[in-house]
């Protein structure tokens, strides 16, 4: 689970993951919300399944109709599929064994190809997603025209169809009430800030996703460079804010980090909201060197592994689940 979260990944004190997502459609047929049933099976799903799940391939196909609501939600929590795909019974996802590559079929577009990697790696994220896109492109003809580039159901993805999203733990900006200023600053640069699960989602555990808002009239390389430049700057800014906060509020911050640790280490049961809140504070404390009961990536992994749908087991009560959540956390936090 969340095997893409690797230890010692770059800038992991602030950045949880980098994701590249490419939207593509098959030429000559309607987009998913207008497509005919025969076309979706024959012209959209079959070529992708044949390409990636043929004999000898270790890629895994999951049809939404074969998954329970909870199983679908768990895939969202692990960032393998989008929230949009959950509600589409005709949708499917093809994933690599570690979940880092996923190809969503019949999402808002026929294909959403994504690659997820730990830490701050926009170049690697785009390169891998781009390679997968090329592989699929050898089996299908993509909808494209010279003026608008790759054609997508929503005009906000036109052109490259590429969105690079960097998941960041912005506790310093949250504590210093700087998120709103950040929103306006990023907006001017053609970037946007969203909750952890994309468009319209609320932030969890002070984690936010920064991504490019513009996709047309800009090349893939420029999108990658913009993200490298501005998110790189934001990483340094978050570190600076954290250091200033610590310098000016040493006792308060140390107290809250030790309290978070105490509760995480000793609680007998723990809700998801509570776990996220304390894990966020603990990660903040680890990055500042206040204490080091584990690495930041261990904490990010716990955040994902203790999410409600991911943790849920059949016939288990909410209390039993909260007990298990506390136990899982205590196995990791020393």
């Amino acid at each position: 689970m969340a095997q893409w979260l690797k230890d010692n990944s770059s800038d992991s004190d602030i950045v949880i993951s980098t994701r590249a997502r490419i939207a593509r459609n098959v030429s000559g047929i309607p987009f998913p919300h207008k497509i005919r049933n025969t076309d979706k099976e024959e012209l959209v799903k079959r070529p992708a399944i044949q390409k990636f799940c043929s004999n000898g391939s270790d890629f895994i196909l999951k049809e939404m109709k074969d998954l329970s609501q909870n199983e679908r939600n768990a895939l969202v929590e692990q960032h393998v599929i989008s929230r949009d795909l959950v509600g589409r019974d005709d949708g499917a996802v093809i994933t690599s064994p570690d979940g880092s590559i996923s190809i969503m079929l019949m999402e808002e577009d026929h294909y959403r190809i994504q690659y997820l990697t730990g830490g701050f790696n926009p170049e690697e994220a785009y390169q891998v997603a781009g390679n997968v896109e090329k592989m699929l492109g050898s089996s299908v003809s993509y909808a494209y025209n010279d003026r608008f580039g790759y054609l997508t159901a929503c005009p906000t993805n036109l052109g490259t169809g590429l969105r690079i999203g960097v998941m960041m733990h912005l506790k310093g900006h949250v504590l210093s009430n700087n998120i709103k200023d950040l929103q306006s600053g990023l907006g001017r640069l053609g970037l946007t800030i969203r909750g952890a699960y994309g468009e319209g989602s609320t932030p969890i555990a002070d984690c936010y996703q920064i991504s490019n808002q513009v996709t047309l009239g800009i090349s893939e390389q420029e999108i990658v460079q913009n993200i490298r430049q501005f998110v790189g700057r934001l990483i340094n800014q978050e570190r600076d804010v954290r250091n200033i906060l610590y310098k000016n509020n040493k006792l308060e911050l140390e107290d809250s980090v030790y309290r978070a640790y105490g509760i995480l280490k000793n609680a007998k049961k723990m809700s998801s909201d509570e776990a996220n809140r304390y894990l966020s504070t603990l990660s903040f404390g680890v990055s500042l060197g206040i204490m080091k009961p584990c690495r930041e990536t261990d904490i990010y992994r716990l955040m994902i592994e203790t999410m409600p749908a991911t943790l849920r087991r059949e016939a288990e009560t909410a209390i039993e689940r909260d007990i298990r959540r506390a136990e899982i956390i205590q196995k990791v936090i020393d």
């Binding site: 010279d146 003026r147 608008f148 580039g149 790759y150 036109l158 052109g159 490259t160 590429l162 053609g190 513009v214 996709t215 047309l216 009239g217 800009i218 090349s219 893939e220 420029e222």
Partner: peptide
């Protein structure tokens, strides 16, 4: 968008 002309 920055321009209505595909560049990628």
């Amino acid at each position: 968008q920055p321009a209505v002309s595909h560049k990628g």
